[in-house]
Amino acid sequence: MRKLLLGALLLLIGFKPSAQNLFEGEYLLLGLGGQMENFKDDLVSPLIYEGYSGAAGIGWHSQHGAWQNNLAGHIAIGLQGPPSLNDASNQTTTISGSINYSLRYRILKLEKQSLFLGLSSANLIGFRQHNLYRNSALSFSNFFSYGLSAAWQYRPKLRLWQTEIPLAWQSEVNFPLASYLIMPGYIRQFFNDESGLKTHAFIGDFWHLEMRHNLVYPLKNGNQIRLSYHWNYAEYNGLNYISQAQHYLMLHLMFKL
């Protein structure tokens, strides 16, 4: 019965065992998922806000030999509120997202594992509107950051009911060293139709860390599905303190190009 169910599942997703490195080649990614977001924005509230959003993503993955390129973006829309309050009227509607580009070179290759190092641009954006406020309802926090990047690939030889499961795993860490920030001014988002604060900051004045974990599974015709978990955290203590964290879980279809 188990074999029958497994067989049906593999047929459904078009499983085709392959010995190749699943990360090799070029892929277009389209994904859907959900996001949990926390933020503390002193222009909005002294409280930490938290909530869930629907998310969609798009990206491009390329790996040829020792070089790996990744471009990934996502956008999420949802409501956040302070979990410490029972009243649901204090809420923000938030459009947030990320855009990430990384270029890495493989510095270590073992039988099942590889390690890449390189550079990345990690960008985190958040547009929040408080539903009870008027003149100061809007608050942006945009981190356009750049720094170092590392990725670890793992290609386990998994067997389930005597069947080889061709999974692969990639974890990425992006550690920005500097960032271009677009933030609210001291009392409101805009002054004279421009954002209140636009500045460069270096690590120490801001913090930004990004982690991505991807589980890849092959489909027919070289296409793949990918389950991604992404954590993004950024903080800046300027005119107003702002910290923002995103967790998103997304299922991507990867179309081989």
Binding site: P46, L47, L85, D87, S89, L132, Y133, R134, I187
Partner: peptide
């Protein structure tokens, strides 16, 4: 120009800041 804010207990308030 009045701007808005809230207290830890959720009450909101506004005040002139320009």
């Amino acid at each position: 120009l009045p701007v808005d804010y809230e207290l830890p207990n959720g009450w909101t308030y506004r005040f002139s800041s320009t």
